Every structure is written in C-alpha cells, then in structure tokens.
Amino acid sequence: MTKSKSFSARTLDANALKSFAHPLRLRIYELLDQRGPSTATGLAAILGQNTGATSYHLRELARHGMIEIAEGMGRGKEKYWRIVPGGFTYGDTPPDAEAASALEFLLDDLVRQRGAELAKWREAATRAPAEWVAASGFGRRSLRLTTQETAELRDEVLEVLERYRSISDRRDGEAAAGHELPMGHVVIHFDVLPLGAVPDEPS
C-alpha cells in the first residue's frame, strides 16, 4: 500500500501552463530562482529589455501564483519580486491541445535548463571552494522495480526534498527581511524515468 504524500508542491493548471510557456517569462523566473529577489528594472538590465516589458511579464507570473512581492524590500514604490515558496509541478497531460502544447514547451525547456546546469557545474567545480565540491554529487541508478515501488521511491525522495525546501523557504523569508546569510544556491535534479516500460521504436 502506497503511503500518502506529505510534500506540497502546487500543480499548475492549464491557464498557468499557457502563461508560463513564454521564453522571457521562463528566463525571468530562472533569474529570480538563481539570484533571489529583484526588481523589474534590475531584470530589464540583465535581459536587455525595457522595464515596461519586464514589469508586464512579472505581473503575469504573479497573476498565476508563480512569484510574489518580497515584503520589506525596496523603497517607495520600488517592488522586489521573488519566487513563491513551495515550488510547483507540471502534473499530468492537460485536457486541451493548447495547454498540452505549452506543457511540451516547458518540458523541453526543463531538459535544456538541466543540461545547462550540469555543464555549468562541471566547469565551475574546478574553481569552487573545496567544501562545496565535497558536498556536491552526481548520481544515476538503474533499478528493476514494480510500478508501485517506483511510485513509492519517487514520493519518498520528494518528501526529503520537501523537508529541505521548507528550510530554504524560511531562510528566504529571513533574507527578504534584510538578513544576510552565507548560503549557496543549490540545484537538485531528480527524475524517475521508466524507460523500460516503453517499447523500442522499430528501426
């Protein structure tokens, strides 16, 4: 019997998928994830866009609950935006063709981003502090499991990730309140790919 899930990542609905499947919004979200809270002006400078464009795309991301205003940061009308704590998942194949196409776009971008991050760390590890290199790791396992065991493995790993995500979210809140903490931006890649369940295409 599979135990109930304790992790709480939000599943994007069809409208959120369609909105998120936009190259500039993906890049804005990626920058906020990598660098922490930022303003429309700061993002515009990095992306080579005008502030009006980045402001519009930030509002769209916020409208679908992807990002939010970082309270306690900025002066006057200046707004800092941050990733909404809790993370998200793309879920199953959406019911309509437009959302399904958006999901394909997002999954392709996810593969691109993971490849880029792996390549970046392979190069950066030669210059990174020794303690961070020692704490990092590449991993791959090839197992023979039932469908139920596969789902249980996935859920157990996601529960561990959820525990550390909660710690990270609390620290993000402290940083947003003006506390500087010596933390590193750590990326964890985790995939469960039942490749053996798919017949090989005829040659």
Rank of each mutant, 00 (worst) to 15 (best):
L32C: 08
T150H: 03
Q113S: 12
S166L: 11
R122F: 07
L32D: 07
S136C: 02
E162P: 00
S19Q: 11
I28D: 03
M73P: 06
L43A: 02
A40K: 10
L103W: 03
H22N: 15
D108R: 15
A40Y: 06
W81C: 01
S168C: 02
R10M: 03
W132I: 09
G74M: 08
G184L: 09
A130V: 03
G72R: 10
D108I: 00
D92F: 06
I83F: 02
V192S: 05
G52D: 12
I67P: 03
A70Q: 07
A99F: 05
Y56K: 15
N15R: 12
T89D: 07
E201T: 08
I69G: 01
L31F: 03
S6F: 04
Y80K: 04
E98I: 04
L107P: 00
A14R: 14
D33F: 03
G52L: 13
A130T: 08
R154E: 14
A197L: 12
T89Q: 13
T93Q: 15
M66H: 09
T89R: 14
A45H: 15
A135V: 00
G48M: 11
Q34N: 10
D13K: 12
A177T: 02
K79A: 09
R59C: 04
W121E: 06
A177H: 09
G72C: 06
K18L: 11
L161S: 04
L161Y: 08
K120P: 00
I46A: 07
D96V: 04
R27T: 12
A62N: 13
A53C: 05
E78R: 14
A70I: 03
D92L: 07
S4M: 09
Q148P: 01
E123Y: 09
S136N: 09
L58Y: 04
M1K: 13
P23F: 04
E201F: 06
I67C: 11
L24Q: 10
E98N: 10
P94R: 11
L103F: 01
G42S: 10
A53Q: 15
T11N: 04
K120T: 02
D155G: 07
G139Y: 12
M1W: 11
R114D: 12
L32N: 07
T93N: 12
E60H: 05
L153V: 08
E123P: 00
N50Q: 14
A125H: 04
I69M: 06
P95S: 14
P129L: 01
A134I: 00
G178R: 13
A53Y: 01
V133G: 03
G76C: 08
S38E: 13
K120M: 05
G137N: 08
D200I: 02
A124C: 00
G196A: 02
A40N: 08
R82G: 06
A197Y: 02
